[in-house]
């Protein structure tokens, strides 16, 4: 057999084995996809299961109906209140955090002074530590503040928002500074020559340039806060003030087995919007995420 023949044979077998390999890999993908989305399908099915209990559920429910959703809406549990709480707490935290950190990051990015590097390094080191660890201390601090100013004490959304804001400062200042650094300083300087103040440069020139990344970071922050559980569960004691995560966890802990369908409906309403945002903005969010740490 000549060398040439050998090569074509090799090619032929290669393309055949490539087809087989693709088929095999698609098969694996199917198995993995089932693993990935089975729990989701199961919840969807549960939410339409008319009997509503864990025991009677089948993957394709007999007589599917909206009974669970109706029960959820009926208001026996303040589900919409929880949902509203989550939406507005996360929104204030995300927007507030971004507003504060963007301003701070601009200062760190554009001005040069002694101690700046040390300070940035310190911020980096501090944000490495998981805030979860200082849980007990944070709780005690809030209860102490509450002794003096009840409106900022345990059980208030204001305290929760402040903690979320405080915890997001380090990483967001770093992220934002990184982005602002990529905007050439020439832009600032030419505006400065024309007599614009730093504040004007920041709001009129830099912010518009940052808009795309600001939106992405806001969404990442929003999703993170929306899904946060432990601080909210520790601080909020009144059922009317629960966030959705705390409310659903308490609901599930109390009567998961009998009211599985109602829980499933609540989980879907609470989880789907986030999932959809994620899937639509996949690439941007992933880009933003891999810069930071792991999702909490």
């Amino acid at each position: 057999m000549s060398n040439k023949q050998k090569r074509t044979q090799k090619h032929a077998s290669k393309s055949l084995s490539r087809k087989a390999s693709i088929g095999f890999r698609l098969l694996i993908a199917l198995v993995l996809i089932i693993f990935a989305i089975f729990p989701i399908l199961w919840v969807v099915s549960a939410s339409f299961n008319p009997t509503g209990s864990l025991a009677t559920q089948k993957l394709i429910p007999r007589n599917p109906g909206l009974g669970n959703y109706r029960e959820l809406m009926a208001g026996e549990y303040p589900f919409w209140r929880w949902f509203g709480n989550s939406v507005y707490i996360s929104a204030i935290s995300a927007v507030g955090s971004l507003a504060i950190t963007t301003v701070a990051a601009y200062g760190f990015s554009r001005f040069r002074y002694r101690g700046r590097k040390t300070m940035l390094k310190a911020i980096f080191l501090i944000q490495v530590f998981p805030t979860l660890l200082a849980l007990v201390a944070t709780f005690l601090m809030i209860s102490q503040i509450g002794e003096v100013i009840p409106a900022l004490g345990l059980g208030t959304h204001a305290a929760l928002i402040l903690i979320y804001l405080g915890g997001s400062m380090g990483i967001n200042i770093w992220l934002m500074k990184g982005y602002i650094d990529t905007i050439p300083r020439d832009i600032d300087e030419s505006a400065m020559v024309e007599g614009a103040s730093s504040w004007k440069i920041f709001t009129k020139l830099i912010l518009p340039l940052l808009r795309p990344i600001l939106i992405v970071i806001a969404i990442i922050n929003y999703i993170g806060t929306y899904g946060e559980f432990i601080l909210a569960s520790l601080l909020l004691k009144d059922a009317q003030k629960y966030t959705l995560m705390v409310g659903l966890q308490r609901f599930a802990a109390a009567q998961m087995d009998q009211r599985w369908g109602v829980f499933a409906a609540g989980a879907l309403i609470g989880g789907l919007p986030i999932m959809i945002i994620y899937l639509i903005l996949q690439d941007q969010i992933i880009g933003g995420l891999t810069v930071g740490a792991v999702k909490g």
């Binding site: 995560m245 994620y278 999702k295």
Partner: peptide, 30 residues
């Protein structure tokens, strides 16, 4: 494939952990 496979990551973990808890329920979980 990628979109379907990242779905577990896109839903707040608290909710899906609770779902797993239900699915693994020793008496009635699927």
């Amino acid at each position: 494939i990628q979109t379907l496979l990242i779905i577990p990551y896109t839903i707040p973990a608290l909710l899906t952990i609770l779902v797993w808890r239900g699915m693994l329920n020793p008496e009635v979980g699927v």
